[in-house]
């Protein structure tokens, strides 16, 4: 067992190039209806590889629902979702993850009674066939441990590896939330309000962490804190009642009167 095998494993289901759309993530008139309510309504979205984009909108705009539809947690009612040119509209959540899609959750969703290291190991082994190995203890897989440690160091949790997650502070749990998404070396990362509940100082640390991410990684983030969002991204998509009402560079969106009226307020 060695490092390279895990590295290879994590990209084992590399998407075939597919039709060269050039987009990492593309949504074509995607809708999600709950009964009569169209929480996501005919959304088109195209995010280039390496792009950093924010998804904003008032509460109830359908942002998290859209994330759930992209990640596969909720099936789309209609429309098409493409990941690196491959149609994943009907693919299961774990299939999309295998194609390089990772996400964080708005409400911290980690493994509370396990240690920080075990949390990270779960993420590290997730995209490798090792996850089904049952014939020897996890402690024997030194490469997995090394990778997990590196990931924890990267998000600033290196000193907390042995702690039980439910004993962590909220800020540390948010860091872990990111670590779990990063551990699989994703190519598309969905961040659902990474700074939710953080103090201004912690939010700045989180912003710094996101800015330092591999530039090749495509990042789509939901963010309420406009200052943080506009500090990180180049492009902004605005969602309102499930529909895209504006899409463009941050400057263009900032200047959009409709957006100013309904969202930026003032």
């Amino acid at each position: 067992m060695d490092q390279t095998r895990v590295m290879r494993a994590s990209v084992v289901e590399e998407a075939s190039p597919g039709p060269a759309t050039g987009y990492a993530l593309e949504l074509r008139s995607v809708s999600k209806a709950f009964g009569g309510l169209r929480a996501v309504d005919d959304v088109a979205l195209a995010v280039r590889a390496g792009e950093r984009r924010a998804l904003i909108g008032p509460n109830g705009a359908g942002k998290t629902t859209l994330f759930n539809v992209i990640s596969g947690e909720l099936p789309a009612s209609s429309g098409t979702i493409m990941l690196f040119g491959r149609d994943v509209t009907r693919a299961a959540v774990h299939r999309r993850a295998a194609l390089g899609l990772a996400r964080t959750f708005q409400i911290t969703n980690v493994f509370p009674s396990l240690t920080v290291l075990e949390n990270c190991l779960l993420a590290v082994q997730a995209l490798s066939p090792v996850k089904l190995a049952m014939h020897r203890p996890l402690g024997r897989y030194a490469d997995l441990h090394a990778h997990a440690r590196t990931t924890l160091e990267a998000v600033g949790l290196g000193g907390r590896a042995g702690a039980i997650v439910q004993h962590l502070s909220h800020g540390e749990q948010r860091q872990l939330e990111i670590a779990l998404a990063l551990a699989g070396r994703p190519r598309v990362l969905l961040l659902d309000e990474p700074t939710a509940g953080l103090s201004p100082a912690e939010s700045q640390l989180m912003a710094g962490l996101i800015k330092r991410l591999d530039p090749a990684m495509t990042v789509l983030m939901i963010e309420h804190d406009m200052d943080i969002a506009l500090e990180i991204v180049q492009h902004v998509t605005v969602l309102h009642y499930g529909r895209v009402i504006a899409d463009g560079t941050r400057e263009a969106v900032k200047a959009n009167p409709l957006v100013r009226e309904i969202y930026l307020g003032a």
Binding site: S71, G72, E73, A92, V93, H94, A97, A98, A102, R103, F105, N109, V110, F111, P112, S113, L114, L122, A123, A126, L127, K131, L180, G184
Partner: peptide, 11 residues
């Protein structure tokens, strides 16, 4: 602990 997180991780 969390099935939804496990799915999101790729399990």
């Amino acid at each position: 602990e969390s099935e939804s997180r496990m799915r999101a991780l790729g399990y």
